[in-house]
Design a protein around this nucleic acid. Structure first.
Lengths: 202, 202
DNA sequence: AAATTTCACAGACTATAGTCTGTAATTTAT
DNA sequence: ATAAATTACAGACTATAGTCTGTGAAATTT
């Protein structure tokens, strides 16, 4: 059924909050924006804010969720004949470029920080689920066509690969802009994958 | 010169605070202990607390610093004839067992969280420096005796290995007790190292 | 259509990390 | 020995994330 009048209004309020918050975040940085400020600029209230979001961090996640769209677009534009190794490498590269240019280090830092706060809904694990599925399909493919070894299950390998991504992003958040996200991630993924390949390269 | 009366007193105060805090942390968990509480139990004051520590997180680091002792003890008890690959694997295993049993997930979670707070002194990068040196020496050794490839510099390889450790610890903090820290770290390190070995195993 | 229930929201209130200022004891300078 | 400077500390104060309660309009039930 179509949304009621009340639901429509609620959605508008939520969108006003998100718009105001993201605008303020981009202007002043996440840590220098207060909830009171967001509420004031968006002409709402604390009550409204915490009806729609469970924490100040959660609103930032709104932006982070866009990454799922990126993942879906990515898989569509992928040439079928490409090897699994190449696919994973390209996925990582595109992903990191996207995170760097479209979302930014401030957002990643906040996401990776807030993911460790107890009793917080597991954003990172959730949004990563799409990523997990994609990588998993590549790994499966690679194991079936003999490109990858089978000493670990496809689940385990996928976990290791996504852990490399998280590790790299954590280090980016830790070391800051001086850290070359794209290059470091490629180096890391290449190395871990080469330990999984049946054919020895170099 | 020997510490003045004033410095002695100050040190005693600091130790009282640390003792009270660690005791409370172990009883109630880091997040359920307030600074006011620590100050009250230790018979000190906010003023005293923030003279000795820059934040609530920093006091937790006091405990974390003990890990440097662990690293030093470890290298001493290491048989000289062991291969570099085995050394790194054993270091990782011992380290993870130590972190799990002696420091605990709550501390690691807090350390990894607070390391991402801006303008916070770089604890993690600092305390990791000892670890970095040790791993680096193993890597150098391994590259010189031909055990490891040289497509990356020893610095770069060391960075990747310690990144694996951080990544694993981050995932531990993220997924919680269900995550088998020791096993996962071994799986990860074995895989990344096997991508670096000159001799192919399995 | 009247009564009841629900719920989005407003804004006062609470909890707590961290700051600021004053003070008294100690140390240093004269 | 006296004066001046330093500093460890006490505790009031501030900033801010998050909670709680009341309200009125919309939805639902009778």
């Amino acid at each position: 059924m179509s949304p009621s009048l009340r639901q429509q209004k609620a959605l508008q309020t939520k969108q006003r909050i998100v718009a105001a918050a993201l605008d303020l975040f981009s202007k002043k940085g996440f840590d220098h924006v207060t909830v009171d400020e967001i509420v004031q600029v968006s002409n709402t209230s604390k009550g409204a804010f915490y009806v729609h979001f469970n924490s100040k961090y959660e609103i930032f996640l709104e932006k982070f969720k866009e990454i799922d769209e990126f993942y879906e677009n990515f898989t569509e534009t992928l040439p079928e004949e490409m090897g699994s190794y190449e696919k994973i490498l390209l996925l990582t590269k595109s992903q990191m470029i996207y995170l760097k240019d479209c979302l930014g280090i401030d957002l990643i830092r906040t996401v990776y920080m807030s993911a460790l706060i107890p009793n917080q809904p597991k954003f990172l694990s959730n949004t990563d689920r799409t990523l997990f599925k994609i990588v998993h399909s590549f790994v499966n493919e690679g194991q079936e066509n003999g490109e990858f070894k089978k000493y670990l299950s496809s689940q385990e390998i996928t976990m290791l690969i996504t852990r490399c991504m998280r590790g790299t992003l954590y280090d980016w958040a830790l070391f800051g802009e001086e850290f070359d996200l794209v290059e470091e991630s490629q180096k890391f993924i290449r190395t871990i994958l080469s330990g999984m390949l049946t054919k020895v390269d170099n």
